[in-house]
Write a protein that binds this DNA or RNA. Structure first.
Lengths: 114, 114
DNA sequence: CCGAGTGTTCGATGCGTATCTTACAGTCCG
DNA sequence: CGGACTGTAAGATACGCATCGAACACTCGG
């Protein structure tokens, strides 16, 4: 009876927003932040559900990190699921791409290509 | 000998940034602002060089407006030219599109499609 | 040459938000 | 059960940035 997910979570279950219900404004603001950009990039380079929130290499504390994930959820960019004590993530590639064509690619390509 | 442009301008000539020299960060931040988004949309719906800075329907004063145009120039989104006492604008569609594929379309499509 | 029109610069202000610290609420393992 | 680990919530702080008002610079038409 190990990984049961869903059931408990932490205090409350993560609230998700469908990309279809996200405004361009919100999406762009969410993405136009250095820390969140980094999160998205790392997330894109990992398998779905393989990364817990704390496993990212960003220069902010847990609290701020939690906030950023909240913003990403609100923008329909990230889906979360509770897996034991950890909250694991998945990048909503296709759904987000369908709503905001090209945007994710832009973030992922980043400046690395230049 | 009417419109001679270039020559004088106001105090200094407008400083432009090539889209190629703009970071994704900068581009996204520039675009992720309601007022600037509006400017871009109106600009996209007008012929090149047909709109002076003051001719846009945005709810901010001249000072703020000037600031926004400065940001847009810095992001490689807008080109300006002095024409008499006015400063007229042009959206750098192709150049910007080449550097940030899809981004401009995204802003222009906006929420109108939903 | 003066006045109207246009846009920039400067200084000050207000608000949003990213951040930290601390406290708390869960989950799991020994 | 008790402690380690993970993430969220709440309160405080700091900084960026959008905004405004006023002063200035430049152009053009009478």
């Amino acid at each position: 009876m190990a990984n049961q997910a869903a059931g408990g979570g932490h205090r409350t279950a993560p609230v998700h927003t469908d990309p279809e219900d996200v405004s361009v404004q919100t999406a762009l603001s969410a993405v136009a932040d250095p820390v969140r950009m980094q999160l998205i990039r790392e997330l894109a380079g990992s398998a779905d559900w393989s990364r817990s929130c704390g496993s990212f290499d960003v220069p902010v504390g847990k609290a701020a990190l939690s906030h950023h994930f909240s913003v990403l959820r609100g923008a329909g960019l990230v889906e979360q699921r509770d897996e034991g004590p950890k909250r694991v993530n998945r990048l909503r590639r296709e759904e987000f791409e369908a709503r905001f064509p090209g945007l994710l690619d832009l973030v992922l390509r980043g400046d690395s290509t230049r």
